[in-house]
Design a protein around this nucleic acid. Structure first.
Lengths: 142, 142
DNA sequence: CTTGAAGCTACATACACTGTAGCTAATGGG
DNA sequence: CCCATTAGCTACAGTGTATGTAGCTTCAAG
C-alpha cells in the first residue's frame, strides 16, 4: 500500500495534483487508514501513470477521461482511441506551424535591435506596427 | 471618438477583453460620455494594437506591461526590450522542440493502431507504458 | 512517548480571458 | 417625441489545470 507521497514520487506528480484528480473524478477515491489518510494500490499507480503520460503528450483531462473509459472496456472498438490520438496529433501539428511563424518573427525582431534607445528600438517598433510582419501569426490561446 | 465596440472590431479584441485590460491597468481608464459609456481616441487604439500584437507573438501580459512602460520612456536603453524579446524567443524555441518530440510520438502511436479492439490498441498501450517511448517528452504546462 | 515528517481539509491564487444576468444609454426611423 | 434595437454598463461566476497556504492531525521511527 502506497501513501499519497510515495505515489506522487513514483509518478512525478505533486501530491495536490493527485488530490485534485480525485476531486474531479479522474482518480478513484482510494481506501483510507483509520486516521483518514489515503492508501493506494497498483491499480491506482497504473492509472495515474497513464494519466501523467497522456498529459505529457498534451492530451486534455477530458480526452484522458475518454481514453481511460475506453481502456476499461477491452471489447470496444479501438477506433475511438485512435480518433482521439489523431485529433491530438492534428492539434500538435497546428501549434507547431504557428510556433514556427512566431519564431521567425521574433528572431527578426531581435536581430534588428541595435541596442540604442527605446525611441529607435526595432522590437518596440515591430510590436507597434503589425504591417511590418512578414508572416501570419495568430498565436493567442495556443 | 470610438466606442468600445468599434475599438474591439478595429483591433480584433472582444469587448470584455478590453474592459478586462482596463481593470488590470493595461489600458487606461478612458473618457466617458455623460451616460457613462467609454470613448476612445487614437492613443488608445495604438496602445491596444500593440498589446494585441504582442499577445499574438505569445508575450505574457506582464511582459507586455514592461514593454509598454519602456515605450513610454523613449530615452531608456533598448536593452531591456531586447532582453524581453530574447526571453520570449527562447521560450518559443523550447516549446517548438518539445512539440516536435510529441509529434513524433503521436505519429508513431497512430500509425501502429490496427483498428481492432481496445484490448490490443496500440494507442492505449503506449499510454500505459511510458517505456515504449523513443523520445523524451515533457510537455505538461506548455 | 516524543518528535518531526507527511498527511488532511478548505480555501485562495495563478493566467488570460469568456460568459451570464439584469440593467441602461445611444441612435435611427416614423 | 416615442419606440425599438443595438450596444453599452456593472458585477459576478466560470474555464482549465493545477499550485500555494494556513492550520490542523496522523503516522512511523527512535
Amino acid at each position: 500500500m502506497l501513501t499519497i507521497g510515495t505515489l506522487a514520487k513514483k509518478t512525478g506528480t505533486k501530491v495536490q495534483t493527485i488530490r485534485y484528480y480525485e476531486q474531479i473524478g479522474l482518480m478513484p477515491e482510494p481506501d483510507r487508514t483509520e486516521g483518514g489518510q489515503r492508501r493506494y494500490g497498483d491499480a491506482e499507480l497504473d492509472r495515474l501513470s497513464f494519466v501523467r503520460h497522456a498529459r505529457q503528450l498534451g492530451f486534455s483531462l477530458e480526452a484522458i477521461r475518454e481514453l481511460l473509459d475506453l481502456g476499461d472496456h477491452p471489447g470496444k472498438s479501438c477506433a475511438e482511441a485512435d480518433a482521439i490520438a489523431r485529433r491530438q496529433l492534428k492539434q500538435v501539428e497546428q501549434r507547431l506551424a504557428r510556433l514556427k511563424a512566431l519564431r521567425t518573427e521574433l528572431k527578426r525582431m531581435v536581430q534588428e535591435c541595435s541596442g540604442g534607445q527605446t525611441a529607435d528600438c526595432r522590437v518596440l517598433e515591430v510590436l507597434r506596427d503589425h504591417s511590418e510582419c512578414l508572416t501570419d501569426h495568430e498565436e493567442i490561446g495556443a
